[in-house]
Amino acid sequence: MSKVKYYYDSETLSYRKIERKKGRRLGIFLLSLLGSLLSGFLLLLVYLNLPNVETPKERELRRELAQMELQFELLNKKMTQAEAVLEQVADRDNNIYRVYFEANPIPEEQRKAGFGGVNRYKDLEGFDNSKLIINASRRLDILTKQIVIQSKSLDEITILATEKQKLLEAIPAIQPVNNEDLTRMASGFGYRTDPFTKERKFHWGMDFTAPRGTPVYASGNGVVSRADNSAAGYGNHVRIDHGFGYESLYAHLFKYNVRVGQRVKRGDLIGFVGSTGRSEAPHLHYEIFKDGDRINPINFYYGNLTPEEFAQILEKSQLENQSLD
């Protein structure tokens, strides 16, 4: 129920009841209706334009998002550079390192294999930049895997290089008597005339004629496996086990100055030329074994002979003359 309002009439000195006019009521109603419509329209405009209205927080988040996209772009460029460098390393690994050390190359499909099976990036889906993030994550994972594969390959190459170095140091690769100490290269590997029976028989080593007491040197790194005079015909002799299937023998020594089990290096003094055992004159009888078989020592003097010196000793070693043992 609406309240009754009065006003004071100064002429009659009494309160009179305020009578509301019907036209005024209609005007107030229409004015209220217009205000409501105007307010609704303004609210509608605000609502429709709300997505375009950016708050300070939203502005800050937009800048962070732009910065993140820039960082991802830089990350992709760096990954592209890393992929190019890794590809060059892999190419050298397959075509130089592994070829040199006689190792099988790593197949390309193994180096660049992806990740199959379960979706590894499911947690990254459903965002505005999911495609960008998933692509970068996938490239990074593949790059990491390739680096691991290459790292293991280089570890293998390091081991092979160490073994190769040991092999190169172990191979009996020098002449056991210096050229300036030689009287002559008396006899080579092959059929020769026996000095005692005068029969033609196979000579399993090379004879180096030198004065008694001439130094004899180890032709490669190894361990002395024998140093005695108990082998028939060899007299005082030394055997060196070089590993990798190689063994060298030095016979008819005047004396030796190494013991069994002693480690020696290429060029170490191991004894002196003599004529002990089945020998006709002072000389060194030298043999090389590979996997238990005697092989021609002429192929193992590349460590201390010039091409001219090697050509001369090769020519002399091929002469079918009389051996000294």
Rank of each mutant, 00 (worst) to 15 (best):
I149E: 13
E125Q: 11
E309L: 05
I106D: 06
S32F: 12
P107K: 02
R59G: 13
V4D: 08
H203S: 07
K145P: 01
L167G: 01
P215I: 00
R266A: 07
T55N: 12
Q150E: 07
E11M: 08
I174N: 05
P172A: 05
R138Y: 14
L124F: 14
H252C: 06
D194V: 04
V46C: 06
L48H: 07
K152V: 00
D9A: 08
S230Y: 11
E109N: 09
S230F: 08
F115W: 03
L38Q: 00
A210S: 10
I313M: 14
F72D: 05
E156Q: 13
N179G: 03
A232I: 11
I134G: 05
R294M: 09
G188F: 05
V118C: 04
H242S: 12
R138S: 13
E169W: 06
F196A: 09
A90H: 02
K152C: 00
E180C: 05
L324F: 10
R92D: 15
T55C: 12
K78E: 14
M1L: 13
E315F: 13
G274Q: 03
A113T: 05
N135V: 02
G235W: 01
R138T: 07
L37P: 00
N135K: 11
I313R: 01
H242A: 12
H285Q: 05
R294S: 06
S39N: 09
E199H: 14
T183Q: 08
N304I: 02
F289G: 02
S10G: 10
R263D: 14
